[in-house]
């Protein structure tokens, strides 16, 4: 592993750098589920006893920042993948607390230079502090120069 990446990992991994509240709007979760192709009432019908957001809904929620303010790798960031871990259903109507940290940093080569992959993770908690879900964004940064 390149030394600068080892240094970045030491400095930035697992340090919360953003906290954002997210209101889970039932109208949005229903429309989200419908556009994805869900047909089950638990995702589409607010009157359903098990009404919940589609498991990947949280992947659409963005915190105030996806990278730490002073993160030194500059370049064009692109969406390389998404991961979602569901620990409990997300109930529309509630407000979640999202805490963001960098979960992983690694590299790959590209034609125009090194690409740095950063996994930015938002951990979602309910008002009681229960951990409900994680959303990982894998961002690839093609370095300038």
């Amino acid at each position: 592993m390149d030394q600068d990446i080892i240094d970045l990992r030491e400095k930035y991994l697992n340090q919360d750098f953003d906290t954002t509240p997210f209101e889970i709007d039932p109208k949005k979760t229903v429309e989200y589920a419908r556009l994805c192709g869900e047909t089950a009432p638990r995702f589409l019908d607010p009157a359903d006893a098990d009404f919940q957001a589609s498991p990947t809904y949280i992947a659409s929620l963005m915190g105030g920042r996806t990278m730490p303010k002073d993160f030194p790798v500059k370049g064009i960031g692109m969406d390389a993948g998404k991961g979602v871990e569901c620990l409990a259903p997300i109930r529309p109507g509630q407000t979640l607390n999202g805490k963001t940290h960098l979960h992983d940093i690694y590299t790959k080569t590209g034609r125009s230079g090194r690409m740095v992959f950063v996994v930015s993770r938002i951990e979602f908690y309910d008002n009681a502090g229960k951990h409900l879900a994680n959303s990982d964004s894998r961002i690839v940064i093609r370095e300038k120069g």
């Binding site: 589920a33 192709g37 498991p55 969406d79 991961g83």
Partner: peptide, 20 residues
């Protein structure tokens, strides 16, 4: 995820990881 629910309506997705 919708495809999974279409196949197994009772399924709870614990995790999904996609590479674009």
């Amino acid at each position: 995820v919708a495809m999974i629910h279409n196949w197994a309506p009772v399924a709870n997705v614990k995790s999904i990881d996609t590479v674009f």
